[in-house]
């Protein structure tokens, strides 16, 4: 178990709601849910995740820390904002879901190998390197995330689309050799480091 997770447990004991309110973006809204379920029904990914937002909120109030933070639900959010638009209590559900995902990730207890989480991670790594997204490398990283053989299979399955993208000049094979980057790469790295520092500070539980 990560240190930050241990610290959090020790600090909040059984009050997971309080923990969420203190550390999750818009977490103070969780208490306002009245369990109508409109978010659950409105989510286009509804049939695919384990717990609906409304259920996650109830689990938070019931102190089900492990189950919530290891849930795959918040990783599924596509930010369509259906839930926010329809929520009769105007809860910023999308933001809370992202906030929970982020918090679980920071504590190191987000579900391993969860595909949307993995895509986010790879996207970030790719982006942070040069300050620009390298589409080709990002695609390849995705194809090969489950090993070499699977990567080849994936690449073959997707080759039609890849060729199409190249013809449309949306994908440049030369990108494999370094690729385009932003003007002040160092500046970007400094910015990211500073942001990380601020985040780290927030993670302290004392």
């Amino acid at each position: 178990m990560s240190d930050s997770n241990k610290q959090a447990i020790a600090h909040y004991r059984n009050n997971f709601l309080k923990e969420v309110e203190d550390h999750v973006e818009d977490g103070e809204w969780v208490r306002m849910c009245m369990q109508c379920g409109v978010c659950a029904g409105s989510c286009p990914f509804g049939p695919h995740w384990e717990h609906s937002p409304q259920k996650i909120f109830m689990m938070i109030r019931a102190g089900k820390r492990e189950e919530v933070l290891s849930s795959d639900s918040m990783w599924m959010c596509t930010s369509c904002y259906n839930c926010i638009v329809r929520c009769p209590r105007k809860l910023p559900i999308t933001h809370i879901m992202h906030g929970l995902a982020h918090y679980a990730h920071r504590l190191g207890i987000a579900p391993k190998g969860q595909p949307t989480r993995e895509i986010a991670r790879l996207f970030w790594v790719n982006l942070a390197r040069t300050g620009r997204v390298n589409e080709l490398k990002f695609s390849l990283a995705m194809y090969f995330k489950d090993g070499f053989v699977q990567g080849i299979k994936n690449a073959l399955a997707m080759q039609g689309i890849g060729i199409g993208l190249m013809k449309a000049r949306r994908l440049n094979p030369m990108e494999l050799l370094g690729g385009h980057k932003c003007k002040d790469k160092d500046g970007i790295h400094k910015m990211i480091a500073k942001a990380r520092e601020i985040e780290e500070r927030k993670q302290k539980f004392v």
């Binding site: 709601l17 208490r31 109030r61 019931a62």
Partner: peptide
């Protein structure tokens, strides 16, 4: 069933804002 008709709904919201937990 939480039965707070009319403007009671505002009172319910106020309690939630104060941190009262409602469990069905």
């Amino acid at each position: 069933d939480l039965r707070v008709p009319g403007m009671g709904e505002d009172f319910y919201r106020s309690a939630q804002r104060k941190g009262v937990i409602f469990t069905k």
